[in-house]
């Protein structure tokens, strides 16, 4: 009787100890993962930072102007191309009533 109880406790201690080590290693692995991920996030953020600087550089208005003139059939809008909602002819039905006076480009 006494022997069995002892055996039970020894077994329990062994199982719990094993479980504890399992959890410990798992936590250790997870912490390694976390560190790696955090490092990756920081690296990603640095990449983003570099890319945003490059984006700003590539969007230099002089460069865009030149590219637009070379590749696009667009020209700067002139005053004649600007109208207001008030300037539009009314529809026959009473379907108007939008806010007047806004600038509308065509």
């Amino acid at each position: 009787m006494r022997g069995r109880v002892t055996l039970f406790w020894i077994l329990l201690a062994a199982v719990v100890g094993f479980g504890l080590f399992q959890v410990k290693y798992k936590v250790q692995n997870l912490e390694d993962d976390l560190r790696r991920l955090n490092a990756a996030i920081t690296a990603e953020q640095e990449q983003l930072h570099v890319l945003s600087a490059e984006w700003a550089y590539l969007n230099h208005p002089a460069r865009l102007q030149e590219l637009s003139a070379r590749y696009l059939p667009l020209r700067p809008p002139t005053v004649d191309q600007i109208g207001t909602l008030d300037g539009l002819p009314h529809r026959t039905q009473a379907a108007t009533g939008g806010a007047g006076g806004d600038v509308v480009g065509r």
């Binding site: 976390l34 920081t42 953020q45 600087a53 700003a56």
Partner: peptide, 22 residues
């Protein structure tokens, strides 16, 4: 979890009124 260390590149950015990086 230990939070990711926020990335800083030293001196702060200067941007225009629309957020374009100067």
């Amino acid at each position: 979890a230990a939070p990711a260390r926020a990335f800083t590149a030293g001196r702060a950015d200067i941007v225009d009124r629309n957020g374009v990086i100067l």
